[in-house]
């Protein structure tokens, strides 16, 4: 867009990079220092021998923790809150239905963060050791075999493939930040009245990402490569949702009683929603 000045792009890139660093859960140096701490064979076996539902619950908790940081990242991006969330929630929801029923109708605002898991997968490349094919999980570096008892080997191996692939692009922190923001803005907001505003912000973020890539002297074509990853990310997340519904059909009570509310709000539109706030 010709209406965006270089100063504006620079400002947006700085805002997004700063937001990323403030909310990144772990510092890269911390993660890199720990790569030698892989799970021992007996620890791997202990994860493998956990009942399926216990491992699912553990992973749901870990994903939810990571997502809480992504939500905070989103909130700090200039323009994100103004788009719809706070304004829309209060204008559309609260007066009409009352606060309690607003919380029940999670669909009102969860669309905006439907791609938060995609951002978790993007951020995962910081915590990924491509040499050993391991990822930081529950205090140490874990290979795909740690997740065996989940019963979704295909999803796990796709997630590890994605991690390895993204690592091979050697993205810097500012590139990860801008790409995360771009992924977040690709969320499907089917209900949103101000769709054009979202598209405009996404275009700006894409330009800021391009600006950062040029500034970092990255090779041509890397932007296209990154944009292509968005569909891979979406496919991973869809697969996660499928696995979750299969799991839920076997263990409905475990999900209802023991899975974090935030996780249920984001990944099961047909789940019972969180309890209303008094």
């Amino acid at each position: 867009s010709p209406t965006v000045s270089m100063a504006e792009l620079e400002h947006l890139a700085q805002n997004i990079s700063k937001s990323h660093m403030e909310t990144c859960q772990y510092l890269r140096e911390e993660l890199q220092q720990m790569t030698w701490q892989a799970f021992l064979q007996e620890e791997v076996e202990s994860y493998q021998s956990k009942p399926r539902e216990v491992m699912w619950q553990l992973c749901a908790i870990k994903i939810t923790e990571a997502i809480q940081y992504v939500v905070e990242f989103a909130k700090r991006i200039d323009g994100f809150m103004e788009l719809s969330l706070r304004g829309d929630v209060t204008q559309r929801g609260a007066p009409r239905f009352g606060w309690g029923s607003l919380v029940c109708s999670g669909a009102l605002y969860q669309d905006d963060l439907s791609s938060s898991l995609e951002v978790v997968f993007v951020r995962m490349c910081r915590a990924f050791d491509p040499q050993n094919n391991t990822v930081y999980f529950d205090g140490k570096y874990a290979g795909p075999d740690v997740f065996k008892s989940l019963g979704c080997d295909d999803l796990i191996s796709s997630v590890f493939d994605f991690g390895k692939n993204l690592c091979s692009m050697h993205l810097s922190e500012d590139e990860i930040a801008l790409f995360s923001a771009f992924v977040l803005m690709s969320a499907d907001r089917s209900w949103l009245q101000e769709k054009l505003k979202v598209e405009k912000l996404q275009q700006k973020i894409q330009l800021a990402l391009q600006h950062v890539l040029q500034k970092n002297h990255r090779e041509d074509g890397i932007l296209t490569k990154l944009i292509c990853k968005v569909s891979t990310l979406r496919a991973l997340c869809n697969r996660h949702t499928e696995k979750l519904s299969a799991f839920r059909s076997l263990y409905p009570d475990i999900v209802r009683a023991h899975f974090p509310p935030l996780y249920k709000e984001l990944f099961g539109s047909d789940f019972e929603q969180a309890m209303p706030i008094e």
């Binding site: 969860q110 509310p261 935030l262 969180a274």
Partner: peptide, 16 residues
């Protein structure tokens, strides 16, 4: 146990 709405409306939640 947090919900999405609480996270969104809270001033500050998760930062390093």
């Amino acid at each position: 146990k947090v919900t999405l709405l609480q996270l969104l409306l809270d001033h500050k939640n998760n930062e390093r």
